[in-house]
Design a binder for these strands. Sequence first.
DNA 1: CAATAAAGTGCAGTAAGTTGCACATTTCTC
DNA 2: GAGAAATGTGCAACTTACTGCACTTTATTG
Lengths: 69, 69
Amino acid sequence: MNKFEIGNEIKQRRKFLKITQQELSEIVGIGLRSLIDIESGKGNPTIDQLQKVLSALGLTFEIKVISNG
Amino acid sequence: MNKFEIGNEIKQRRKFLKITQQELSEIVGIGLRSLIDIESGKGNPTIDQLQKVLSALGLTFEIKVISNG
DNA sequence: CAATAAAGTGCAGTAAGTTGCACATTTCTC
DNA sequence: GAGAAATGTGCAACTTACTGCACTTTATTG
């Protein structure tokens, strides 16, 4: 899962919840500009920022071992 | 999953693979100091850095919807 | 299609992550 | 338990992310 996929997941989820980037940025407490960059995959956010956004959207992330099955 | 848990996952995996922090930092191409901070949960790395470390360890991460089931 | 809202961009200042160094502490190994 | 290896810390420089602003482009709505 790369930055673009992450951005898309976030964007999809935000749209599903029917909120704007502006609204989400205010809910999360990060700059609108940062959120835009995250969603477009152009940014390189810190874990804290990513966590905040995911959390606000009812999302979370897990670490997994890459398996061959 | 918070930064401490992430750090622990990484540390556990690294030890499982029997490599030192020094070695892993060289494999990944990041500073030893950064890796130490990531493993201890003190750092706040960018996605790029986290991805590099996870990838080198044969790990990956997924975004999931938080469910009530 | 005109008006408005939403999304996206370049830029520059501010805040924060990254790194190596020198050193301290903990953990192995004999 | 001495010596060595691995892990961890404070610090300062260097680099990069974060943010708001002014503006452009792309939906959306009447």
